[in-house]
């Protein structure tokens, strides 16, 4: 179980907060997707959870700090060493006995299906194999929690499939996973929980299904013409969360009686709805709604 309460961190006193009151829980044995646009604070959050940095405010409760391992986005290993030597080094540097080291390395090799390339230098591996080695190294510490930072960047679909399956296997064995990614379909495929952060703040967090249910009554309309001003004024008063962009309207939450009201008013104003989308949005739609569409970089 990981519990974050009102976590705040900034890199310099004169800079804005990189994390500004982040709170969420990750239940033990779950895979929690961490989503956010570039600069949202994901890397800072992972650095705090992994112990690289200390939060300046707020509270962080972890089951067992020592058993967290990070799978960074970079290939964080030694290209001059072989796969086996890398694993042996990272196990050894954690103070394992020789026997334990061998056992852990063998297990990590098998978990990441790297046995056939154990003697090859890491620098000579393909992108997919490097990603698997990156994951295997994290397992040499026999962690209970894995923090994965975009672990599938630059790999082919086969390798991605393998890595996602490996993450699932880890969680099925009782491990807890925080999975940071920009790939929504991956998060939807493996995560039971999700946290979306932006500008250092938590926008939404909780079980993915529950979040979907909360956003299930969203309505998106593409109209034949912009609605009259008087109509818009009335709607904005009744549906304060409504957003409009020209002929496109979006209502994050709207009940069935609201639907009937809207269509009646549109018909009275002589405006046709050319496209109507109602119901549960996919994760990407939900993400874009929550974080807005503006570019961040």
């Amino acid at each position: 179980m990981i519990r974050l309460e009102n976590l705040r961190y900034r890199y310099r006193p004169d800079r804005p907060w990189a994390l500004d009151g982040v709170s969420f829980d990750i239940p033990r044995g779950s895979i929690c997707g961490l989503l956010g646009p570039n600069g949202a604070g994901k890397t800072t959050l992972i650095a705090l959870l992994s112990g690289l940095m200390t939060p300046q405010e707020g509270r962080m409760t972890l089951d067992k700090q020592a058993s967290i391992a990070v799978v960074p986005q970079d290939y964080a290993f030694y290209p001059m060493l072989s796969v086996a030597e890398n694993l042996d080094f990272f196990a050894g540097v954690q103070g394992c006995s020789r026997r334990e080291r061998r056992a852990r390395c063998a297990k990590a090799l098998a978990f990441a299906c790297l046995e056939t390339v154990a003697r090859r230098r890491a620098g000579e591996l393909s992108g997919g194999l490097r990603r698997r080695l990156n994951l295997a190294i994290a397992l040499t510490g026999a962690p209970e929690t894995l923090l994965l930072d975009e672990p599938t960047v630059g790999v082919d679909p086969q390798s991605r499939h393998f890595l996602l399956a490996a993450v699932r296997r880890f969680a099925e064995a009782g491990g807890t996973v925080l999975y940071a990614s920009h790939y929504m379909e991956e998060v939807e495929a493996v995560c039971s929980d999700v946290v979306i952060i932006d500008q250092g703040r938590t926008l939404v967090s909780g079980p993915l299904d529950a979040i979907r249910r909360d956003h299930a009554r969203g309505l998106t309309l593409a109209l034949s013409a912009p609605p009259p001003e008087t109509l818009m004024t009335g709607w904005q008063a009744r549906f304060p969360e409504m957003t409009a962009a020209g002929k496109a309207l979006h209502f994050p939450r709207i009940a069935t009686d609201g639907l009937a009201f809207l269509f009646a008013e549109l018909a009275a104003a002589g405006v046709d709805a050319e496209r109507v989308a109602y119901g549960a949005p996919d994760l990407e739609q939900m993400f874009m709604q929550l974080t807005r569409h503006a570019l961040r970089d």
């Binding site: 992994s50 112990g51 690289l52 990070v70 960074p72 986005q73 964080a76 030694y78 954690q94 190294i137």
Partner: peptide, 16 residues
């Protein structure tokens, strides 16, 4: 090189 590739950060997360 170790710092840029993240190996040093990884060691730091391993309490080295």
């Amino acid at each position: 090189g170790e710092r840029q590739h993240g190996a040093l950060q990884r060691l730091a997360t391993q309490r080295v």
